[in-house]
Amino acid sequence: MSLEQKINQDIKAAMMAKDNAKLRGLRAIKAAILLAKTEKTQVDELHADTEIKVLQKLAKQRKESGDIYKNQNRDDLYQIEMEELQVIEEYLPKQLDRSAIEDVVKGIITEVGATSIKDMGKVMGAANQKLAGSADGKTISEVVKSLLS
């Protein structure tokens, strides 16, 4: 079952349960998937990696918006963003913790023969490919910088 089909089923379930917070998050996911499908020149199904990228983008947007609302003391809007973020994260693969990311990056550093911060581009390219969907780019970048410096 594709992510889109699962989202449609979950929207129906959330409507029946009258779960407005979950419904908002699911509708945001559905809208982003439909937008991604129209951008990919009339594709019927998105690849799993594209779906994950769409979900990661939505999660990042919710986190950034939540931070802004928190800084402006808008707890009502912050709460809405965090509720939607929780729903989006349910559909993302489990994120690795920092130590697991460090282990993977150490292996990549030895694999590509990186010795200094100048090799960060090579390491980042390989790390982003290997950790796609299971870690965000910001964390990967922080780990690579700390290991290469």
Rank of each mutant, 00 (worst) to 15 (best):
D136L: 05
N128Y: 12
A21V: 09
V43F: 04
M124T: 11
D103L: 15
G125K: 07
A126L: 12
T38Y: 07
K145G: 04
E39V: 04
D10M: 12
A132E: 11
A14G: 05
K60I: 00
Q61C: 07
L77E: 00
V43R: 06
A21M: 11
I101N: 11
E111A: 14
Y69C: 05
K145R: 09
V87Y: 00
V104W: 10
E51V: 04
Q42G: 13
A59R: 11
L58V: 07
L131E: 00
A36Q: 07
I88V: 03
K40D: 12
Q129I: 06
E81P: 02
P93Y: 09
K130E: 11
V112F: 11
N71K: 12
Q129D: 15
G113E: 10
R27F: 00
V104Q: 15
M15G: 13
A100F: 09
T50F: 00
H47V: 03
Q129W: 03
I140A: 08
K70I: 08
M124A: 13
V144L: 06
L147H: 02
I108T: 08
T139C: 08
A132C: 05
K70H: 06
G121F: 13
K37W: 02
S141Q: 06
A48M: 10
Q56R: 14
M82I: 07
L77V: 01
P93I: 15
T115Y: 13
L131T: 07
M120H: 08
D119N: 11
G125W: 08
A127T: 04
G66Y: 01
T41N: 12
E83Y: 02
A48I: 06
A14D: 01
G113W: 06
V104L: 09
D10N: 15
Q86N: 04
I109H: 00
K94I: 13
A135E: 14
Q9L: 14
L85C: 00
I101Q: 08
S146E: 07
N71P: 03
G25V: 09
A48F: 03
Y69M: 08
Y69E: 09
D76L: 08
L46M: 02
T139G: 07
Q95F: 12
T115W: 11
K30D: 08
K106I: 12
A32F: 04
A127I: 01
I68W: 01
V144S: 09
E51S: 02
L55Y: 00
A126V: 14
G113N: 12
Q86S: 05
K37I: 01
V123F: 05
A114P: 13
Q72S: 09
V143I: 05
L46T: 03
T41F: 09
G137T: 10
Y78H: 08
D76K: 03
S65F: 12
G66D: 03
D103M: 14
G125E: 15
T110D: 13
L58D: 00
E81D: 06
I33T: 01
L147M: 05
Q61N: 06
Q42M: 10
G125S: 15
Q95V: 09
R24F: 04
